[in-house]
Computed example of a mutant assay.
Amino acid sequence: MDRLTPEARSANMKAVRRKDTAPEMLVRRLLHAAGYRYRLHVRKLPGSPDIVFPGRRKAIFVHGCFWHGHACRAGRPPQSRQDYWLPKIARNQDRDRQSVEALKTLGWDCLTVWGCEIRDTEYLLENFRQFLGPAKDSLI
């Protein structure tokens, strides 16, 4: 296993994007091709959801398994510096819960798409259709 220097690791972590990530872009392309129209990163809403359907009052969060502590292989915490990573991931999870609760209080429904789920586009499409209802102008 390659060990990165602290400087290289820091550069790696700084390169991680907050929005327009590869999983988010795939979800957006899939939704658009299925005929759904949406808004992006609506900052007026709690948690600034990644994808928002204002007319339907529905929001989708696209979470990276590692950063948000998903219970999958990619979501395992690192073996090093757990005193740093475990509280950081726990704060992310708390913030996620608070955002979803605040949105629910405002009458919104939320769906979380995990990075590990994006490989199965048929599953995603079915999940989106169940969550959002029929699209207005579907291409697929």
Rank of each mutant, 00 (worst) to 15 (best):
D109Q: 13
Y84R: 02
D109R: 12
R97E: 15
A90T: 05
C110G: 15
A90R: 12
R56C: 04
A102R: 08
W114F: 07
F53A: 05
G69K: 03
N127A: 02
E24Q: 09
L139M: 15
L124H: 00
K136F: 12
D120E: 13
S138D: 11
E7G: 10
L30S: 04
I60E: 02
K136A: 14
D2I: 12
I60Q: 03
E122S: 13
Q98A: 14
A8M: 13
F66W: 07
I51Q: 01
L125V: 07
N127Q: 10
R17W: 04
I89C: 05
A8N: 12
A102Q: 09
R3Q: 11
F66E: 05
R17G: 08
G107S: 14
R18L: 04
E24L: 01
S10F: 14
L40I: 07
V62M: 07
Q93R: 12
Q79L: 12
G64H: 00
R95L: 07
I51V: 14
D20F: 04
Y123F: 14
E7I: 09
W108E: 08
S80K: 10
D50Y: 03
F131N: 09
V27Y: 01
L45K: 10
W85M: 05
F131A: 13
L26H: 00
T5D: 04
P49G: 03
P87V: 03
Y84M: 02
D50T: 01
Q82T: 15
D20Y: 02
G69E: 02
G115W: 00
A135F: 10
A34W: 05
V113C: 05
R57W: 09
D83Y: 00
W114V: 09
